[in-house]
Amino acid sequence: MNDKDSYEERVSQIKLQITDLYKVLSSLYLEINNDELVSDKDKESLLSKIDHFYSSREVTQRLVPYVSKRDLGASYQDSIINLIRFKKNIKKNGLPISPGGNNKGHDRKFAELLGVEVPQQYKFKEAFSGIEYIENTVLKPFSGSSSKNVFFMSKGEILEINNGSKYLSLSDLNAAKKMDKAFSSARWIQEDIVYNDGKPANDIKVYCFYGEIGLILEVDRASGPKPLYCYYNSDGQRVDVGRKRVPNFVGNGVPEIALKYAKKISLASPVPFLRIDFFKGDKASVLGEITPHPGWHAGERTDYWDFELGKLFDQAWARLYIDMVNGKKFADFFSVYCDMK
């Protein structure tokens, strides 16, 4: 047996094992639901545990009624992947909407149209050769995500915020990054660092489902060598989403204005989900960026949160569809992000 045949056999065996597993799980689901000796409270607890991780791909015919009754198969992770494929297909038909490599210049213009505060800007879509050291500014790529190649200029040095590396000058930074193709080809935005209590402001990242808040992440990048994380639910209560490999902190709370801005941006966008990022400054919350497809750290989340955010995703699709059927135009969005001519 050659290597290809060996791999194919292993793949087939695993597929059969997964199918058999879900057959057993399907039978257990129905057995629990139909057991008259189990109280309604205990049934809810037991079935919820299965709801939270049951794959929609494995829903059997007998379980189809529970897709409507209990949102069986709902998943944030699956919904993000489906949304990416959906956007690929509508782009093929001439309408690019909210691609993953978010254009920060467009984000800023969109925010300004909606009355959302933005930081003072010094350079826009500038080649690296045109960048100067300006104290208390941040340098970031015109297009990009995940805080890659984002730098603080402060106290006479340059700090790379996603890994804590420090550089004494722009020439040192350029030399260190000469093999980084994304860095070398980037165009740059330079704007004020937003401060809170004398240090760079914490990020407030709002997971927004067409006007409904699902989750909020506060990130402190200034208190130590590694970022610190605090998650909140939509009511502002701290929650554990299952990320065990990152340092957490108590958090400083979420400003209401950031949530108001996030809802406004979300409802003005013809997509079911956006993560909208702000800086929590002393005087105001200002836009950081708009992230269409944030990472969710597969394997570092609880089934509960993947399920709950998946339900919000489904509900957002429904509200968005109804608004579109009723004639909502999203004029501000299309005027900034899409050439409709």
Rank of each mutant, 00 (worst) to 15 (best):
S129Q: 12
D203Y: 02
E300H: 10
K226H: 09
D203C: 07
V138Q: 00
K341V: 09
G327E: 12
Y133P: 03
K43C: 06
P96H: 09
L309K: 01
A316D: 07
D42E: 15
K328V: 13
R275C: 00
A268K: 05
A74T: 04
L215Y: 00
L173A: 04
I97H: 03
N233A: 05
R238V: 15
K123H: 09
V38G: 01
L259I: 13
E126D: 09
K280A: 09
I97M: 06
Q315D: 14
M179K: 12
I216P: 01
D277S: 06
L173K: 00
S27E: 15
S143T: 15
S56G: 06
K69C: 02
G288H: 03
E132V: 06
N2K: 13
L320M: 05
R187H: 13
K199M: 13
L139D: 01
L113F: 00
F334P: 06
E112F: 03
F86A: 11
I18V: 14
C230F: 00
L47D: 00
S145M: 15
P225R: 10
S285Y: 02
K226L: 12
E191M: 05
V67T: 11
G299V: 07
A175H: 12
I322P: 05
L21S: 08
P99F: 01
R238L: 00
A176G: 10
I193W: 05
D220S: 05
L170S: 06
I189S: 02
G288N: 10
S79R: 11
S169H: 02
L287N: 04
K148N: 08
C338F: 09
A175R: 14
V24L: 13
S56Q: 08
S146C: 15
Y29S: 03
Q315I: 14
H106M: 08
S154F: 07
T291M: 11
G288M: 04
S55V: 05
T60E: 08
E58V: 00
E112N: 02
L16N: 12
K155N: 15
R238A: 07
E256N: 14
Y54D: 00
L16F: 14
D332R: 01
N82W: 07
F249R: 10
G211A: 09
K244H: 14
G130Y: 08
F273G: 00
S171F: 04
L46S: 04
I257T: 12
F151T: 00
S147D: 08
N136M: 05
V250A: 15
R85M: 14
P255E: 11
K181C: 09
A316I: 03
D5F: 09
P270F: 04
L95D: 03
I216H: 02
A176R: 10
Y261E: 04
K329W: 03
S98H: 02
G211N: 08
I161H: 02
E58F: 13
P225K: 11
G198K: 08
R62A: 14
I18T: 12
I216D: 00
